[in-house]
Design a protein around this nucleic acid. Structure first.
Lengths: 180, 180
DNA sequence: CAAAACTGATCCCATTATGCAAGTAGTTTT
DNA sequence: AAAACTACTTGCATAATGGGATCAGTTTTG
């Protein structure tokens, strides 16, 4: 029997699962941007993920138990990707990453607004957010007001009032792979 | 002028800097294990990093401003690697990663002890820990008691009292690259 | 003082990951 | 019936990763 892991350290095992350039981007887009379909993830990706990479990461994340895949009733071959509980519990980690990135990378102001909100909201807001994600992705009932709506509102406000150099993220005219 | 980044999102920029399988392992070893030399990082690595990868990551991390490199007075060609302030501020992120990994990966009990302590200590402990790291790596004066000593003590206790299946991490007989 | 051990790397080479562009088979809309 | 949309797959080129040996100095050891 071979040992499939480099070590039993929790940090290492987390890195083995998520330590690449795209996995957390995909999760971020599903989580914050509520992208649920392949196409949404592909074409609305701020970073421009390639289709083969996206397909690969979706497979891996489903295999790793971070996403679940189900059929979309409105379209025979449309798949819906949902977060699982482990992925939802990545909210604090993503919040921390955003907080660190805001301080120590050349992040643009507009794209940092949601990270700032998540950071300032702290564990209480994360908890509300996670509850909301559970209702969205796991079909649990909801009570409180929408954190996602809050994030989107803050983001929209930042975009309209921006003095930033970056183009508005609603869509830079990124070339989609359907060609002629 | 080319755009060197995929996007200005703080999470993305953090991933561009640290989103690989080894960078955070190196930082973890320096930060928690107080490994300061190439050889220490190479041979005492729980995960068995290759020397070329280690050399590459040390270079990148120094270039990225997360580590600094200085000469060791006791040995002409010995280098000492120190954490910079941005790297020290990764403590909460690493704590979160440990916390998540403890719950959602097959982490061994012994190797999870320090992660648990960091998690339960919360922001107050992280802050003490970061102060201690500043004194160790940036030459700042210290006041409080040592968090690193705490972590090591808890770890040592867990190792001696373990019923775990994993070998003791003091050193699995990993083959070092000096041969014959 | 010569041999051995130690230092931070570097080199070679195989494997794996990434990324672009195009293509596919089926489904829905027009 | 044609066009557009769906989730991918394939081919191919390039870049990153990783294992193992090696290296040129430096220090320690016998």
């Amino acid at each position: 029997m071979v040992e499939p892991h480099r070590s039993g350290c929790p940090i290492n095992l987390t890195l083995e699962m998520l330590g690449d350039r795209w996995s957390l981007i995909v999760i971020r887009d599903i989580l914050v941007g509520n992208r649920r379909h392949f196409r949404e993830l592909l074409t609305q990706s701020e970073e421009g993920i390639a289709s083969n990479i996206l397909a690969d990461r979706l497979h891996r994340l489903v295999d790793a138990g971070l996403l679940s895949r189900s059929d979309d009733p409105t379209h025979r071959q449309k798949a819906v990707y949902s977060l699982t509980e482990p992925a939802i519990q990545l909210v604090p980690l993503l919040a921390m990453m955003g907080a660190w990135g805001r301080r120590h990378t050349p992040a643009t102001r507009v794209l940092s607004v949601r990270a700032q909100l998540l950071e300032e909201g702290g564990p209480d807001l994360w908890s509300d957010f996670m509850d909301e994600l559970r209702s969205l992705h796991l079909g649990r009932p909801m009570k409180g007001p929408s954190v996602i709506a809050k994030l989107q509102a803050a983001f929209a406000k930042a975009v309209t009032g921006q003095k930033d150099v970056t183009p508005t993220p609603e869509k830079l005219p990124r070339r989609v792979k359907t060609k002629r």
